[in-house]
Design a protein around this nucleic acid. Structure first.
Lengths: 197, 197
DNA sequence: CCTACCGATCGGTAGG
DNA sequence: CCTACCGATCGGTAGG
């Protein structure tokens, strides 16, 4: 790990607890065992630290969705792999994932616009997978917008509760979430309104 | 609205955009048309602003769960009302709800511990409703922990996307989310694994 | 609600 | 990676 990577990793770890605004270069320096001014030999600015983590994470999700669409043609299989990949990415670096989820709001104007656009594209890709499932007759004819919101929010919540030292591996978490989600999506005729009063 | 309430409301609105750490008393003062020092005639400290919004919101959820358990005895009806109430509370003040969701981490040590405990209690109440549904034979024998996480994260995501000027009223949003969630929970035998490869 | 001000700290630069 | 330092700003207080 280069010195620059060490600085970034420590910064992200501290950002997770203090937030972007709450992280000071002096605290970061102290944790690295150097003076605040020395940080600027490795990074350009505090903003750059945030931009790097946000766009590196976004890149991983972009690649995942490309791979999924490359490998599978069936909606349920696409969805299963995308959920598995999404969970894997989040769990592979929980510090970075948490900062990615919470702190993108504090990106400088220009890169924030870019970031939101990338996220929108990702959401659209998922929406298309769900629409495919509906068209193929596998999924219920539900509102795809709400389905995407519900799916992504439950997946992304992983950063709030997942414990890497707990009993469940990321793939096992992905399986449980997939089962819950796909059941809500799947076609069924007898689910109309027969839950007794 | 008292002057103190005006100060709080403006502070919460600004906190939504800048975060707790990013909100400065000088910006708040400017938006109120007064000097920074004058704010302290209405509030005790910046921390107090955050504590007030977090605990007022928490109180609303506490009341809701008490009412739900008071009125209904059936798990599906309890769940339906609780989801409706949860969505109603979030949508009734989106600024406060957003700050409640994002900024509780920055509560001072003591009140943060209290806050997390209250949230845990709320989660436990929902868990018990789901367990009741399983015991009554309405819900699938799923992992209640994951069900609670999935339900709450999809409900709470409302603060990220709900537009009060959009076409959907809070009750309509609640209905859509309830339908999605309850279908994932409901008992079914033919959903084992028959989604074709 | 104001003026005047406190000590502390901020992100960052110059020059070595 | 350091010393030395910049101008700006921070949350908050005293005293009116």
């Amino acid at each position: 790990m280069t010195r620059k990577e060490q600085v970034r990793k420590k910064a992200i770890h501290l950002m997770k607890f203090h937030g972007f605004s709450g992280l000071t270069m002096r605290l970061l320096a102290k944790e690295l065992g150097i003076e605040a001014a020395s940080i600027y030999n490795h990074i350009k600015s505090k903003d750059e630290l945030l931009e790097t983590v946000c766009f590196e994470m976004a890149k991983e999700f972009e690649i995942a969705v490309l791979e999924v669409n490359d490998i599978y043609f069936n909606a349920t299989e696409k969805l299963r792999m995308l959920i598995t990949e999404h969970v894997r990415i989040l769990c592979s670096d929980l510090d970075a994932s948490t900062v990615f989820m919470h702190e993108w709001r504090y990106l400088p104007e220009g890169s924030r616009v870019q970031f939101v656009e990338k996220r929108r594209n990702y959401e659209q890709e998922i929406k298309q997978i769900i629409q495919l499932g509906i068209d193929e007759g596998d999924f219920d004819d539900i509102d795809t917008k709400y389905a995407v919101i519900t799916i992504l929010s439950s997946l992304n919540a992983i950063v709030e509760w997942y414990n890497p030292n707990g009993p469940l591996k990321p793939t096992e978490v992905a399986d449980r979430l997939y089962n819950f989600i796909v059941k809500a999506l799947m076609k069924s005729t007898q689910f109309s309104a027969n839950y007794e009063l």
